[in-house]
Simulated scan of single mutants.
Amino acid sequence: MTREIVLDLSSYQQNLTANDYKNIGATKMIVKLTEGTDYVNPYIKQLINRSAAGGANGFAFYHFGRFHNDNQAIAEANAFIKVAKNTVNAKKNTLLILDAEITGMPTSSVITFLKEIRKAGFKTGFYTYKYLLPNFNLEKIHSYMDFFWLAAYPLGNGKRADKNPNFGYFPSTKYVDMWQYTDNLLGYRVDGSITVTDNALKFFNPESKTTVEPKKSEWKKKSGTFTLEQALELHKSPHIESDAIAKLKKGDMIKFDAMLQGPKRLWLRQPRANETYGYIVARDKYNKPLGKIN
């Protein structure tokens, strides 16, 4: 079988650039969508877009579980499913993974969570650390998971690892499809995993072709200046809910190098240091101009 490196992306990797992804050379990504019932990763689309620009061609998604009973498991599964459908347009058979690494999470509730994911038409994944496995009944969970992802770091936390893990330290546990062996792949402070079965890879490109963009909106190269006609925020990603880099006042001017007409707003992209960008709304959802473009 062909072994491939897979990256695990969350808000901690927001600063990785397309060139970083190219340098790492991985083509499969697992992106964190949600945690509990009220957290949504604000960098989802940034992580997808930058990794895709760096060569990624397959995506799966995960939820960090916080539940301790079946009712909470159902609520969290539904929150995860909603974001998967609405934010990344996940189609049937897309792989949705439960990240189970808190204490006191019952096996019965893990199964309840995975059942909800399957009922919604998705493939199910289960992730945990080797040292946490005794907390779960893997044999019972096995029937409800399509994919098993296990973490064990032979070099320890934070130690730089390359793309060739020492399989002498492989966590010899039944059903493992992918081994997460480092949290600092090639010094990029990104979790790195390696596939160990053919089963692992097929779920990153399901037959239904998971669409990671809800719309076919594309950035268009265009340079210019934008002078604000009211106070606005410069965002970390082109989404109105994303964190602000800066709060700008009326009369401030920024330089931009591209524009994007989204489903609701016109966005401008400001080049910043280290191949990063800031994003600002030039027209609101009512098509009202918020400044002057030159």
Rank of each mutant, 00 (worst) to 15 (best):
A52S: 15
A53C: 10
A79D: 08
I24L: 05
E35T: 00
N137G: 06
A100E: 02
F147P: 13
I102M: 03
A90R: 03
A73R: 00
P42T: 02
H68F: 06
Q46A: 13
T124Y: 05
Y39E: 01
R160T: 15
Y144M: 11
V110D: 03
F122M: 08
T27S: 15
Q72Y: 01
H142Q: 14
Y62V: 04
A151R: 09
T103C: 08
L95T: 05
R50F: 15
L47S: 11
A90W: 01
N49G: 05
N89S: 11
K159N: 14
A77T: 09
F80R: 04
L96V: 00
N78T: 09
D38Q: 14
I44G: 04
K82H: 03
A52R: 14
I117K: 06
T34P: 04
L33H: 02
L98H: 01
N78F: 04
A75L: 13
L47C: 09
K159M: 14
F147N: 15
T37E: 12
G121W: 10
S108V: 13
V31S: 07
G25L: 08
L133E: 06
D146R: 13
A60F: 04
A52V: 09
V110C: 06
A151T: 03
L47F: 06
G54C: 11
R66P: 01
L138D: 06
V110W: 05
G36L: 11
G121F: 04
K119D: 11
G36W: 12
F126M: 02
Y129W: 10
A52C: 13
A77K: 09
G58R: 02
A100K: 01
L33T: 00
D162K: 15
N135L: 12
G156P: 04
A152C: 12
K22F: 07
N89V: 00
A56E: 14
G168D: 13
N49K: 10
F67T: 05
N135R: 08
L132P: 05
A120G: 02
A152H: 15
T87K: 14
Y39A: 02
L98A: 00
L155F: 08
P106D: 02
K123V: 12
A52E: 15
T128A: 07
P134W: 09
G158I: 10
N78D: 14
N71E: 12
L155M: 07
V110K: 06
D146F: 11
Y127G: 06
V31L: 03
A52W: 13
R66N: 11
L114D: 08
I97F: 10
P42A: 01
H142L: 09
I48R: 09
Y39T: 00
S51R: 12
I24S: 07
G158P: 10
F167P: 14
H63I: 01
K159W: 10
L155D: 09
Y127E: 02
K45T: 13
F80W: 00
S143Q: 15
T112W: 00
Q72D: 11
G36Q: 11
K45Q: 13
E101K: 07
L114I: 04
I74A: 09
H68K: 07
I48F: 11
I141C: 05
I111F: 04
T34L: 02
T27I: 13
A73Q: 03
Y39V: 00
F61T: 09
F170P: 05
G104Q: 03
E139Q: 15
F170D: 05
A75M: 07
A151S: 11
